[in-house]
């Protein structure tokens, strides 16, 4: 049907046009402006003059220990945090898909964390994690009968990043859950039933029917979560301000510091570009994997 006739091409173009125009209009200028700045020196604290410096900003980034620390922290959040969100989210979706009429209540309740603005939840968690007035350590102490004293979650370099990660898991697992649930809903019931009748059992049907059909949706969900976690800013800004020390600085937060605190615009632009390149590489890998899987499905 969707062959290469001229009318069809026009229709295809017309369908894409609104999105294309909108995205081009709002992305091209920031991109070009940032690219120009990345090769310039513009220190707003010194002067508003911009001068070309070649690759200096990029060279600086590669020698900047604080930049690498921020990259490392971000990767921990992306790799470990998103993996936890994936497993929990798909697991919960599978549970919910088995539940009958009470599902409305469960689903609504489990989606609440996504609906709370980070600005709001950030302030709640600052109190929750607080080691003097916070309920978390109070509960740990009460439940363990006074044996365990919880750490000062956000003030200890060993737990601060973990705390950010747990908050991210709390906020975004429901997102993976809903995507996976929507994917599960599109699986014909007959298919799983037929597999179970054929003697595949619950787990057989799970691995052979549900997971393969879910994979394309999951890969897209994962890609979106990886991209967004790479940009983690709000939580760090609200919970720790990057501290203690630089132990929770993410790359987005470090970019913000350079731009809005140190007013080092050239360096900010260079770091932003490095991030863009890293995310593009990661996204490419994801899409190649997804394509392979789709290819395998057809055969």
């Amino acid at each position: 049907m969707f062959s290469s006739s001229v009318t069809r091409r026009r229709v295809a173009f017309a369908f894409v046009l609104p999105a294309f125009v909108l995205l081009l209009a709002i992305s091209i200028y920031p991109l070009l402006r940032t690219l120009g700045l990345a090769f310039s020196s513009l220190e707003l604290t010194v002067s508003p003059a911009e001068s070309f410096v070649g690759f200096d900003n990029f060279a600086k980034a590669f020698q900047d220990a604080r930049f690498w620390n921020a990259m490392g922290n971000t990767l921990v959040l992306v790799v470990v945090g998103v993996a936890i969100q994936l497993v929990l989210g798909v697991g919960l979706a599978l549970l919910l898909s088995e539940i009958g009429f009470t599902r409305v209540v469960w689903l609504t309740a489990l989606l609440l964390p996504v609906m709370i603005a980070p600005v709001v939840s950030g302030f709640q968690f600052r109190v929750i994690y607080n080691d003097t007035f916070g309920p978390l350590n109070y509960l740990i102490k009460t439940i363990s009968g006074g044996f365990i004293t919880g750490p000062p979650w956000l003030a200890d370099t060993r737990t601060a990043l973990l705390t950010i990660m747990m908050t991210d898991v709390w906020q975004w697992t429901p997102f993976m859950m809903l995507l996976a649930l929507a994917g599960l809903e599109s699986i014909p019931v007959e298919l799983t039933e037929a597999a179970e009748v054929d003697g595949a059992g619950y787990w057989g049907a799970f691995w052979r029917i549900k997971i393969p059909i879910l994979l394309p949706v999951i890969v897209i969900g994962l890609l979106i979560r990886v991209m967004d976690t790479f940009k983690t800013f709000d939580l760090v800004f609200l919970l720790t301000g990057g501290g203690p020390g630089s132990s929770t600085e993410t790359i987005a937060f470090y970019t913000y510091l350079n731009g809005f605190r140190f007013f080092s615009m050239g360096y900010t632009a260079a770091i932003a570009f490095i991030q863009l390149i890293v995310i593009i590489v990661i996204a490419r890998v994801f899409l190649v994997v997804q394509k392979r899987m789709r290819g395998g499905e057809v055969q």
Binding site: S27, P30, A252, A272, A283
Partner: peptide, 20 residues
């Protein structure tokens, strides 16, 4: 082309905020 569409979402908002 599909990739270009998703890539517009990858740019760090901290950096695009000022030009926008």
């Amino acid at each position: 082309f599909s990739f270009w569409i998703i890539s517009t979402r990858m740019f760090p908002p901290v950096a695009s905020a000022i030009p926008l």
